[in-house]
Design a protein around this nucleic acid. Structure first.
Length: 428
RNA sequence: GUGGCCAUAGUGUAGCGGUAACACAACAGCUUGUGGAGCUGUUAUCACGGGUUCGAACCCCGUUGGCCACCCCA
């Protein structure tokens, strides 16, 4: 016996069948909803050149500075486990010459992301994103498309008590002006701001706005707001977006304190929040990133996207005890046998059922018929087929209805068709 | 990276210095031609390492892991 049991790395976890149902369900809803809206699936590597994220997400962001899994491979390349998906999709867009495809391009993707941080509720080192990117069109209708898709996915999953938070943080034309205003304001009220915020003020002043400290909240109450210093372009863009949003009946909230932690966002930013307490309240977020593609070496191309934190949605579904549909693909029939000759006949019978698309299970190792029925019962199959020595000799099969307990003897060659008939009529 | 709480069969818990108990699950048997019930039995070097003690699941230190909050974000 091994003395030391190897366990999974901190912040990662095994998603066992019981929990997997939730992930599968969320992916299935999000996948279907996205395709229905004209999005295509794209998959990019989990590892990328580390500089992709340094340039794209921002070298000074916490994500890249402190939380990225960076390592050297055997030939000395500096690679990173992706901390998010957008930079990869943009890289792929540029690299594969998609600049020449008709715009806008609409992609979705899902899979694991990695950030090194202290794990806690709703926060893992390996976590799962479902993300969407719309590339190549600057018009606000695309912001709306992204938001409404995000909203639809969440509500189709069964989430209630959610709200869409939105803001505009301007563009390279108007943001510097705003930053200056904000810094001046902070300077005047410097005493009423927490330590962290004094540090933030230097690195990324916008982040002071979403500090949770009560003292800071008080100070921030009267702070200048990004919306008031938007340039004409940003202002018109945002107003048009709000007009569209009003057409939809989505409960959005204008949140002047909403700021995002990645450098590449411009203009529109948004998040989807749950109102239930406990754990993290942000289920996903996104925004427009008009400068990113150029920054990564492509032609200047506007884009907008979002991602959802799948783990957090799973947690929420569980906490709120929201029912999800049961997994549909499973065995409908159990095949039981008694005796060596019958065992071989059962192997063939199961194979024929499988070839005809019928889900079948059998436990030919078990000796007693009693044990096998016990197993069939646990599996919850509606029908059990039995072949004993007598049936093997007569070339017949017993069809047993598990609910009523009734059994009928059928000739072997008619069994598969009969089973298909029964399962189809039961399914309606 | 910082702080608080925690760690006992597969799961959920009891035991709070005198060498592990309960429920459910699982497995085996009663039962090689019939399941859902029942009964019987089996399943823990008390996370790991060290220390205090005649004696540690229990007290102390360390490690690892978990939860929660900060930070950060999804």
């Amino acid at each position: 016996m091994a003395k030391k049991i190897i366990q999974n790395p901190r912040g990662t976890r095994d998603i066992l069948p019981e929990e997997q149902r939730y992930f599968d369900f969320i992916y299935a809803v999000a996948d279907a909803e996205s395709r229905r809206s004209g999005f295509d699936k794209i998959e990019t590597p989990i590892i990328e050149d580390a500089s992709l994220f340094e340039r794209g997400v921002g070298k000074d962001t916490d994500i890249v500075e402190k939380e990225m899994y960076t390592f050297k491979d055997k030939s000395g390349n500096v690679l990173a486990l992706r901390p998010e998906g957008t930079a990869s999709v943009v890289r792929s867009y540029i690299q594969n010459g998609m600049q020449n495809l008709p715009k806008p391009l609409k992609f979705f993707y899902y899979g694991p992301m990695f950030r090194y941080g202290r794990p806690q509720a709703g926060r893992y080192r390996q976590f799962y994103h479902f993300g969407v990117e719309i590339i190549g069109d600057k018009k606000p209708i695309n912001d709306l498309l992204a938001m409404s898709l995000m909203w639809r996915i969440c509500s189709n999953i069964g989430l209630t008590d959610i709200s869409l938070q939105i803001n505009s943080i301007g563009c390279p034309n108007c943001r510097p002006k705003y930053k200056k205003q904000l810094l001046e304001y902070i300077k005047e009220s410097n005493k009423n701001i927490c330590k962290d915020c004094q540090r933030r003020a230097k690195k990324n002043p916008l982040r002071v706005l979403d500090c949770k400290e009560a003292s800071c909240q008080n100070t921030i109450e009267g702070a200048p707001v990004t919306l008031n210093s938007l340039c004409k372009d940003c202002h018109d863009h945002f107003r048009e977006l709000l007009e569209y949003l009003d057409e939809l009946e989505i409960g959005y909230e204008l949140n002047p304190k909403l700021v995002r932690g990645l450098d590449y966002y411009t203009k529109t930013v948004f998040e989807i929040w749950t109102k239930s307490d406990g754990g993290q309240n942000s289920l996903g977020g996104g925004g427009r990133y008009d400068g990113l593609i150029e920054l990564l070496g492509g032609k200047p191309t506007p884009a907008v996207g979002f991602s959802l934190g799948v783990d957090r949605i799973v947690d929420l579904l569980k906490n709120q005890k929201i029912e999800i549909p049961a997994t549909s693909e499973k065995a409908d029939v159990f095949v039981a046998q008694l005796g060596d000759v019958a065992k071989k006949k059962c192997i063939r019978l199961m194979h024929d059922l499988h070839m005809e698309g019928v889900g079948a299970e059998g436990c030919i190792e078990k000796k007693g018929i009693s044990d096998q029925l016990k197993m069939a019962n646990k599996l919850g199959v509606p029908i059990t087929l039995l072949i004993g020595q007598k049936e093997a000799f007569d070339n017949t099969v017993i069809i047993k209805d598990m609910q009523s307990g009734n059994q009928e003897i059928y000739p072997r060659e008619k069994v598969v068709r009969e089973i298909k008939k029964r399962l189809n009529s039961a399914g309606d």
